[in-house]
Design a protein around this nucleic acid. Structure first.
Lengths: 168, 168
DNA sequence: ACTGAAAACCAAGATTT
DNA sequence: AAATCTTGGTTTTCAGT
């Protein structure tokens, strides 16, 4: 999941945080265009939305600095040699935030969310093969203090992944 | 989830697909650098890995064309005005692939995976507010033919989202 | 808005496999 | 022979004033 996050390495505010003020209509348009092509030139963006190159550049720079937007390369983990992926549903009997922080430190976890519902936490994990996935779950994740139960949802097929929500 | 996918709009192969041949060590290095900064210049990448600017540019272009990599802007949905996000666990009594295809068409769903485990499908959804999320789940998702049950995991906090797996 | 500097682009030609 | 890389020259974009 997680097509969607901004801050480089975690610790997002709660759902009730104030939404970023700087997200006016112009910035949304810019983001939209960069969602299609992250390397699109400032000139061409400016032309499209009727703004000077410099104005676009400053806005983009500010959004990057503020951590509101990132421009990154994304690939299919499969293509990068990670043959297994899964979602782990976790129930906690101790401190949820502590567990979440610990999970965040594990390299093979790219996505951690605290949820309401049957699970306290959902985490997306990936591994080279079954063996390494088992080790990850059994030796690392389940060793974290305060974890009650884990439930694994192995990915069989990633059917769709979209970065352009709000666009289409 | 889903920090990770390549093809622009879905339909990925199964987990057993052959992994992309063109992903040699050089390309991996390039991807790694672009995962940190998607607008990094070809010159600087080339310098880093000992290749000419043109060579890097051609490789990047090829990876983009082949759909192995995308360079995109990513933002926190919260900043874009979507105050609610959730994972939906879905069990199907009919054709799983059909349901997955239908889900893929819904704009407010950015991520659909077919899984093994208690749920047949996991989908990440987002909405402006509670009302629109309720409508999405109740009027759209649950109306799809073949869906048995749905279970909602509302996001309380996105703890971490990483795009640089394989790096650190 | 202007300008020098940097980056991207393109077309051959060279090199590798 | 096909694919990949380099080089040199040109155009476009960038970044700072």
């Amino acid at each position: 999941m997680a097509a969607a996050k901004s801050s480089k390495d975690g610790t997002e505010g709660t759902a009730s945080d104030t939404t970023a003020q700087s997200m006016d209509e112009t910035n949304k348009k810019i983001v939209t265009l960069l969602q299609e092509d992250g390397r699109r030139s400032y000139v061409s963006i400016g032309k499209q939305i009727g703004l000077s190159e410099a104005a676009v550049r400053l806005r983009v720079q500010k959004m990057l600095d503020d951590g509101i937007m990132q421009i990154v390369a994304v690939t299919n983990p499969m293509d990068m040699g990670f043959k297994r992926q899964a979602m782990v549903g976790i129930t906690v009997n101790g401190d949820i935030e502590y567990v979440a922080r610990e999970l965040k430190e594990i390299h093979q976890i790219d996505y951690v969310i605290i949820t309401a519902g049957r699970f306290d936490i959902l985490a997306e994990i990936f591994a080279e093969d079954d063996e390494s996935m088992l080790e990850l779950v059994n030796r690392h994740i389940r060793k974290i203090d305060g974890i009650d139960r884990t439930e694994l949802f192995t990915y069989m097929r990633l059917e769709s992944q979209r970065y352009d929500w709000g666009v289409r």
